[in-house]
Computed example of a mutant assay.
Amino acid sequence: MKKVVVVETLRLALEKKLYEAQAAADSARMDAIHEQSAAETQYDSLSIESGYLAEGQSERVEQAHFAINAFESVFKTDKISSVVEGALVKLSDEEGDLYWYFIGPTEGGLKVTISNTQILVLTLQSPLGQVLKGKQLDDEVEFDFNGSKQFFYIDEII
């Protein structure tokens, strides 16, 4: 796996989230100021609801900008020898199944697929991220997943 490909794919995924958030915010703003949203009675709350929705969508845009800026700093991380933000980590379990994680500053749970390989963004604040934090190549980690112990082996850190 080439880290530069993962970084570019994540960059595109984050930009897509920003674009979708901006489109939703624009649509919500237009709905909030549309003449059909004007209250016809004292109990008509469509314009108020539309305003709240527009505000929420604007917050999503701000969060997307924040995520893009946060990732830009970790995308530049070089020469990684342990699990830190910016690391691309390959784990294997006892059955030989492989898992790829990009350790990011935010957006935990974001998934991208490259050549039929799924890469999941993991933050160091997540339960698995806390277990992996600072670990090095060839370390074995134990993780309690839904009450059962799982063991992972760190195969690669890029």
Rank of each mutant, 00 (worst) to 15 (best):
V6L: 09
K111D: 08
P127G: 09
S148C: 04
E142Q: 11
A70T: 05
K111S: 07
G96R: 08
F75E: 07
Q22E: 15
N116G: 03
L88W: 01
E62M: 06
L10E: 12
R29L: 14
D31Q: 07
A87V: 02
I114V: 15
Q118N: 10
G147N: 12
V5I: 14
A87G: 08
F75V: 09
L120I: 15
L88P: 01
K111M: 10
F151C: 06
H65W: 12
M30Q: 14
D78G: 01
Q22A: 10
Q130L: 12
A28Y: 06
S81P: 01
K2C: 02
S45F: 13
L18T: 04
D78Q: 14
L122V: 06
S148G: 02
F75M: 04
S45Q: 11
F152V: 03
S45P: 00
N116H: 11
D93I: 03
L91C: 03
D44G: 09
V141P: 09
L46A: 10
G129W: 06
Q130S: 11
V112T: 15
D138N: 15
R29A: 13
S37C: 02
H65N: 13
I80V: 14
H34N: 15
D139R: 04
E8Q: 15
A21D: 04
L46Y: 07
L12K: 15
I157N: 00
L122F: 07
A25D: 06
F102E: 06
L91Q: 02
D78S: 13
V5A: 14
K2Q: 13
G134W: 10
A24S: 12
E142Y: 05
L110W: 01
Y19A: 11
M30F: 06
A23Q: 11
S47F: 02
V121F: 09
D44R: 05
G86K: 05
L14R: 01
A70Y: 03
D144T: 08
A39H: 03
A13D: 01
Y19T: 12
D31H: 05
E156R: 05
D144F: 11
Q136I: 07
A32T: 08
F102G: 05
S37L: 01
S47E: 14
L128Q: 05
S148I: 14
E107H: 00
Q63W: 03
D144Y: 08
D155W: 03
Y52E: 12
M1Q: 04
M1H: 11
E156M: 06
I158Q: 13
L128T: 09
L110I: 00
T113I: 15
S115R: 10
S82P: 02
K17S: 13
E72P: 03
V74P: 00
F145V: 14
E55N: 08
E142A: 11
G56D: 12
H65C: 06
V89F: 00
N69A: 15
F66W: 11
Q125R: 05
A25S: 15
K79E: 15
Q42F: 10
S148D: 09
A64D: 00
S92I: 09
Y52V: 02
S27F: 10
S47M: 08
S148M: 09
K79F: 11
I80Q: 00
I114N: 08
S50F: 10
L10M: 10
A25K: 03
Y99K: 11
Q36A: 13
L18P: 03
P105M: 09
A28V: 10
V5M: 05
S92G: 05
